[in-house]
């Protein structure tokens, strides 16, 4: 029993360590990009955006333990629904307000 427990614990720790490393790398990349200034501005912005998205996924996968398995289906559905709503709200706001700005310009 305790062996099994021990193995489980080790596996969990393993997951957290991978998550931590990925999170640090994904934070270091944009910081490094800005501090060293090696990239032109547009590609820098893309780099930051993509790193941020990956960061979100890493957090979900390794720290909140959301994956595609059946037992996490509810959580995954809620996250996807949240994404849909945020996309509607943010995308809609940008669309409407930029349209108004254009009409008044």
């Amino acid at each position: 029993m305790s062996d099994h427990h021990e193995a489980e614990r080790r596996q969990e720790l393993h997951g957290y360590v991978i998550g931590l490393i990925l999170a640090v790398v994904l934070s270091a990349l944009p910081f490094g990009g800005v501090m060293l200034g090696l990239l032109p501005k547009t590609s820098l912005l893309w780099l930051i955006a993509i790193a941020a998205l990956c960061q979100v996924i890493v957090h979900f996968r390794f720290f909140l333990h959301i994956d595609l398995s059946r037992s996490h289906r509810d959580d995954l559905q809620l996250i996807l629904f949240s994404l849909l709503i945020v996309a509607l709200m943010v995308g809609g706001t940008l669309w409407v307000l930029s349209n108004q700005r254009h009409m008044m310009g």
Binding site: L84, L88, M89, G92, W95, V96, N99, Q100, H102, M103
Partner: peptide, 21 residues
Amino acid sequence: AVLSFTVWLHHFFTMGQDGNV
């Protein structure tokens, strides 16, 4: 419930966005 998040602009049709919106 889902559609309710896609219609908010009908409260301000007259605020100055174009006809397509």
